[in-house]
């Protein structure tokens, strides 16, 4: 049978979505459609006539409302167009599974831990480093939302925070307190975006209030004002190592530290320094001849 006749018999036209043709041809390998779309597909607003819609009801059935909400807000800033992708929504679903697994695995450890923000202000060492990370993530999150509701980058900060919390292995009571603070802040940050999972985990953590009625956590200024920061050291634009220095350290002190550092010293000693580019608390680039 000619293609023309086949299309007519199946009530199809050349302007229809190729997925209808594949169905009629009994090609049900979804990877084929995916490869066709990846190779020659074009992006267009979802519409019935193009047959490229995703039914929200189906998406909720497959992944849940929180995943759909997270995916939509994470994929692009609100005012930009974005292209729906199966990989994207699966990524959002994986993230929520990770969040669930992580928090539920810590519940026994953390449920009965109590802390006040006052007592955490003076923690030292690893606990202090973790607090720095927690509150920097929160700080960035709040600023991104303040600035024209940039949920995509705000959510990225929450994702980074989950990584940090997962990597942290609490050794004593203080560590646990800080970890609990971190988990709580993470759930509060995510609650406007994925309210159901956060509400459930909040309750599992032993909280009595609804997370939907909680206040937005505030950034602890002491926590993000670390007295030591790690900066990158570049020699002639190439990253050669990192240095732990005082916050806002002076340029001349940084240079003498580089000179006396066993690893970094060899790049500069005996050479003349032509130029120094120093971005406080972040990076120094030393240009030598």
């Amino acid at each position: 049978m000619k293609i023309k006749e086949f299309l007519k018999e199946n009530n199809l036209s050349k302007g229809d979505n190729v997925s209808f043709l594949l169905k009629k041809l009994n090609i049900d390998d979804e990877n084929i459609l995916k490869r066709i779309e990846d190779n020659i597909g074009e992006s267009a607003k979802m519409s019935k006539s193009k047959g490229n819609t995703v039914d929200p009801e189906d998406a909720v059935k497959e992944f849940g409302a929180d995943t759909v909400r997270l995916y939509i807000l994470f994929t692009a800033p609100p005012e930009n167009d974005f292209e729906w992708s199966e990989d994207g929504i699966r990524g959002a679903f994986r993230f929520l599974n990770r969040l669930w697994d992580f928090v539920t695995s810590k519940i026994n450890d953390l449920k009965d831990v109590n802390y006040t923000s006052e007592e955490l202000k003076d923690v030292r060492g690893r606990a202090k480093e973790l607090r720095y990370k927690i509150h920097s993530c929160l700080d960035r999150y709040l600023k991104d939302i303040e600035k024209h509701y940039q949920f995509n980058t705000a959510i990225a900060s929450a994702m980074i925070l989950l990584n940090e919390l997962e990597e942290f292995d609490p050794r004593d009571e203080i560590d646990k307190k800080v970890l609990k603070e971190g988990v709580e802040i993470l759930l509060l940050m995510l609650s406007p975006i994925t309210p159901h999972i956060c509400e459930e985990l909040w309750k599992l953590l032993g909280k009595e209030n609804y997370i939907s009625e909680e206040k937005m956590p505030e950034v602890c200024e002491e926590a993000i004002a670390l007295d030591e920061v790690e900066i990158g050291v570049q020699i002639n634009g190439k990253l050669r190592g990192r240095l732990k220095v005082k916050t806002d350290e002076k340029e001349e002190n940084i240079i003498s530290m580089i000179k006396s550092d066993p690893k970094l010293g060899k790049y500069v000693n005996g050479k003349s320094i032509r130029k120094i580019v120093y971005i406080k608390n972040k990076l120094v680039n030393v240009v030598v001849s």
């Binding site: 000619k2 050349k14 302007g15 229809d16 292209e83 729906w84």
Partner: peptide, 25 residues
């Protein structure tokens, strides 16, 4: 912004594969 999605029309696929309406299915 809008929500977009990739799509391919039957005509576009035929063009890409170099087949015409007169060819066999």
């Amino acid at each position: 912004g809008m929500v977009l999605k990739k799509w391919v029309s039957i005509g576009k696929l035929m063009e890409d594969l170099g087949v015409s309406e007169e060819d066999d299915i």
